[in-house]
Amino acid sequence: MSNREKLKKLILDVFLLDESEFSFDLKKQQVDTWDSLGVVSLAVGVHQTFGYHFTPEEATSIQSVADIIKLLESKGISFDA
């Protein structure tokens, strides 16, 4: 499974989204379940899946799936299609 697929599965599981609701352009404000506990769950999931631990500032600054990819790429995790 590619990192893009892993991230998609993680987002679906953390926010209980249907496949049809997901896109790599998805923004926090479009997801009703992207709440404060969701941020914690996302951070734990990213750590379990990609081995990187968001700092609290990073976790709360994320506003979209694209932000997650950008942040993880800056840590050397590749999301090439």
């Binding site: 209980l16 249907d18 009703d32 379940t33 709440d35 506990l37 969701g38 769950s41």
Partner: peptide, 15 residues
């Protein structure tokens, strides 16, 4: 499983 999870999403807060 997705149908069950949908119920949780619709009815209950994450906690």
């Amino acid at each position: 499983v997705r149908a069950v999870l949908k119920v949780f999403r619709a009815r209950f807060p994450r906690a």
